[in-house]
């Protein structure tokens, strides 16, 4: 099992991000906000996983997501910050 660390940076304090990591056999979910900023550390067996990220970018602020402890990802980490105020969604494929 490899430790995979997911961090979310929420600037302005009013945004949030829900992150799912799943495969055919596992499904994990974590909620990031100003009061629960993480990081979120997962123990994952080597293999391919999909990551779903959905949240809200605060007006004038941004939300950043980074996944560390992985072999590779599509798209590459860290993700470009979500800057447009409102809802955002991003799918990611990772190899552990």
């Amino acid at each position: 099992m490899n430790p995979v660390t997911i961090t979310a940076g929420i600037l302005l304090g009013a945004g949030d991000a829900t992150v799912n990591v799943f495969s055919h056999t596992v499904n994990y979910s974590h909620y990031f906000s100003a009061v629960s900023p993480g990081p979120w550390v997962l123990a994952l067996a080597p293999g391919n996983y999909l990551v779903g990220i959905v949240g809200t970018c605060p007006p004038g602020g941004s939300v950043t997501i980074n996944i560390a402890g992985i072999v590779s990802s599509v798209p590459a980490m860290p993700l470009p910050p979500f800057k447009t105020a409102g809802k955002f969604i991003q799918g990611v494929s990772i190899t552990v």
């Binding site: 302005l12 009013a14 949030d16 909620y31 809200t56 605060p58 602020g61 105020a85």
Partner: peptide, 10 residues
């Protein structure tokens, strides 16, 4: 103020 409100739709 936009910077003070909290919008969440968890």
């Amino acid at each position: 103020d936009s910077t003070l409100f909290v919008y969440q739709d968890r």
